[in-house]
Simulated scan of single mutants.
Amino acid sequence: MAVFRTNAAAEEPVLQGDVRQRPTGLAGIWAAIWSFSKRKPLGAIGAVVILAAVAVAVLAPWVAPHNPEGVGIAKKFSPPGTESAPLGTDHIGRDVLSRLIHGARISMYVGIMTVLVGITIGTMVGISSAYMGGVFDMIVQRIVDALMGFPPIILALGLMAALGADINNVIIALVVILVPGATRVVRSEALRIKELDYILASRAIGANPVRVMWNHILPNVAATYIVLMTITLGFAIVVEASLSFLGVGVPEGVATWGSMLEIGREHIHTQTWLVVFPGVIIAAVVFAVNFLGDGLRDVLDPRLRGR
């Protein structure tokens, strides 16, 4: 007579300590940040610099020691190191440090709003172009080719000449510059995702195109979207500073890093601090953005993991 015995080992519960479980919630966020900091220290430093710049921009009215537009002719061209003006004063006695702090508000506002609007529009247009295909895709790509045929600065100068000097007009000009590149990058990624099996299965059972693009394609290009936002933020800050340097960006008299460079250009041989300090700030923020963007790309792109 055969005797059937149950496998006691198979019935034993699996101990939780034997299986590594990823933390969730706030603990999971901190664990991801710590892991990213260890793997990409330059990216972590870049994130700290960007957060510091954003914090300074938000708290500018309380952090700045003086009124950025306060004129003091008697104190003009005060060298750095004085008690009242640690970074010196400009040609009409305005405090350089206060203008740098308030200039962060313009640069960070323009940069963040530009990438949010421009990259989002480019992502939506790129996904739609890749999924719809046909005549719609051809028309979109010809428009993208036409816009990308212009040098970015030249296109921005033309738009600003037509729209006029204003902060919102600067954002519009930069959005027009960023949308074509974002559309082209996202479209190439969406074309690959479009041919995957689960996308074909969704289409086979009659899923709505909007549902397929929103629920299946968009989440899979989220990593590309995040990397594009971080990388193009530095480009937007540089272009905004360039437009202000050329006098076609924000209205005259508004404290921006680019306008401070334009003022210091006339006195670069005698009062070099007027150019050095805003130039160093722009370079530091742009380098920080690039470091963060490269780190996120290496972490989020499956093709680059492990390199």
Rank of each mutant, 00 (worst) to 15 (best):
H66S: 04
V110D: 03
M124N: 03
G88K: 09
I92P: 05
G72S: 08
I106R: 07
I101N: 09
L100H: 10
H102I: 00
A74R: 07
I127F: 02
M124V: 14
I121G: 15
M124F: 15
G81D: 12
P86L: 11
V117P: 01
S98A: 14
S107I: 01
V96W: 06
G111S: 12
A74D: 02
G88A: 14
P79Y: 08
I127H: 02
G122P: 03
G70N: 08
D90I: 12
G103A: 13
I101G: 04
M108D: 01
G81F: 12
V71S: 02
E69L: 13
I101S: 05
I112W: 13
D90E: 07
L116E: 10
I92E: 00
G72T: 06
M108P: 06
S129T: 01
L87S: 06
Y131N: 12
H102Y: 08
G118F: 11
G70C: 07
G118Q: 11
M108W: 00
P65Y: 14
S98E: 02
Y109D: 07
P86D: 08
V125F: 15
S107R: 05
P68H: 04
H66C: 03
G81T: 09
P65C: 09
Y131A: 10
A85H: 15
T123L: 15
T89P: 07
K76S: 14
I121F: 15
P86H: 07
Y109V: 11
K76W: 02
I92D: 02
S78I: 10
S84K: 09
T123M: 15
G103D: 00
K76N: 08
S98W: 05
G81C: 12
D90H: 09
A64G: 13
S107M: 00
S107Q: 09
R105M: 02
G122V: 10
I112V: 14
A85G: 03
L97A: 05
M124Q: 07
P80L: 13
T120C: 14
G72Q: 10
D95H: 07
I121P: 11
I92N: 01
M124L: 13
P68E: 06
K76V: 06
H66T: 04
R105H: 11
Y131E: 04
V115L: 04
A85F: 15
P86A: 04
L87Q: 07
I112R: 05
G88S: 12
E69V: 15
Y109P: 00
S128I: 11
T120A: 15
T114N: 08
S78F: 04
P79M: 00
R94P: 00
V71A: 04
I127M: 04
V125M: 13
G72E: 07
H102G: 00
F77M: 08
S128C: 09
I119L: 12
T123P: 06
M124K: 01
A64F: 09
E83H: 11
I106C: 05
S129I: 07
F77W: 09
T82D: 08
P80G: 05
M113N: 10
